[in-house]
Amino acid sequence: MTETQTAVPEAEAPAPAALSAENITVTFGGLVAVNDVSFTVPDQSIVSLIGPNGAGKTTFFNALTGLYQPDRGGRVVLNGLDVTGMSPNRIASLGLARTFQNIRLFNLMTAEENVKVAMHSHLKSGVFGTVLGLPWQRREEREAHEVALELLDFVGIGKTAYEYARNLSYGDQRRLEVARALALKPRVVLLDEPTAGMNPRESAAFVEFVHRVRDERKVSVLLIEHDMSVVMRVSERITVLDRGEKIAEGTAEEVRTNPRVVEAYLGSSAGDNHITIADEEGE
């Protein structure tokens, strides 16, 4: 356990990592989707994961959050805790929250209820307490309600608290996903292509929003993003995946000038830095 920090390559920053992944490999049958990727998310930082379509970014995300099991030898350490092999809900309640590339809200629940669902692991009321309506459980419910409204205000959709999630506009649904993730009181928030479908102005506003999330909620943010203008402006560090392998890592400037990165992108898409591919990637 104690060698966690030292074992991670290129972890020059002395600050302890909020999340670190070591030697993550994910294979489907014979297909290697993610091959031996290690990386670190320092505490309260904003880190991006980029790569061409089918590079394995979402698979890597899923391996971090416990939806997929990394192959033997891989380790995910969250907040100093080895969470490899734990169930997704356990990992989530330990402080790793996420949003989904193709928004997965609870459509027939109100925005406020959506947020409260994510507080599940922080609340205690059980069957008997709920049925009997014990005073402390009523108080707990009331507090959860207030926290939910506060979170919805924070992401800017406080007015829609009692709308069904499916009735929200696309942008509001994305915001609700973030509010829901924050309700887990996470250490790290993973945002899976949060600007997909946004226009440039909305994307610019989103950069501000990510900074606010980090500063006011004291979390680390890990982004998967296709919009390079967002990535370059928001990220403190960038990791580049291509065909399941980590090909580069560093600051925006280092990555931008890295020949392997340029080649990976040139090989797969138009040559400029502004690669905005909105839709799904593989897996």
């Binding site: 356990m1 104690t2 100093g80 805790l81 969470v83 092999g85 734990m86």
Partner: peptide
């Protein structure tokens, strides 16, 4: 921070495999 490295080792991470 990594305040509880010892607790980590004892967590039931191998439950699934078991």
């Amino acid at each position: 921070m990594a305040q509880s490295p010892t607790a980590a080792a004892s967590l039931p991470k191998s439950r699934l495999r078991l």
